[in-house]
């Protein structure tokens, strides 16, 4: 998640914003889908060109994504804020709804969408109906 803006700024309502101009960081759009066996996370990261620019860190309970934007995005007058703003990375940490097994997790990057498939740690058995 982008760093929260300091409360002394008097801009607490900005804490839900998807950008942090001080850190040059954007929060990507994302979705989490949970199936019986895995958790699937998809993250939209336009302007990221290479899979080598993406870092995925997993624990049993969290997934943290960092991605470098190929060419720094610069707005001369950013929104109503009207100041220059530059963004050069995405960052987001997900709290996972179930424990996962990081060792068997997979990631792919296609059309600027990063997809993580995180198998659940809980083991499942199929039994025969007699």
């Amino acid at each position: 998640m982008p760093r929260k803006l300091p409360s002394t700024s008097g801009s607490e309502w900005l804490n839900g914003a998807m950008w942090d101009h001080l850190e040059g960081c954007l929060e990507p759009l994302s979705e989490i889908q949970e199936t019986e066996l895995e958790i699937i996370i998809r993250v939209d990261i336009p302007c990221v060109k290479r899979k080598e620019d993406i870092s995925v860190k997993l624990t049993e309970d969290t997934a943290t994504i960092e991605a470098k934007i190929e060419n720094v995005i610069q707005y001369e007058r950013w929104g109503t804020f009207q100041r220059q703003a530059r963004f050069f990375r995405y960052s987001k940490t997900f709290a996972l709804p179930s424990k996962i097994d990081p060792e068997f997790s997979k990631a792919r990057f296609k059309n600027n969408v990063l997809e993580l498939r995180l198998p659940k740690k809980e083991r499942h058995f199929t039994i025969t109906v007699e």
Binding site: M18, L26, L29, D44, P46, C47, N112
Partner: peptide
């Protein structure tokens, strides 16, 4: 302009 649009439309999309 696809990527630029995707980037700028994030908040409206959310």
């Amino acid at each position: 302009r696809s990527e630029e649009i995707r980037l700028n439309a994030r908040e409206l999309m959310r």
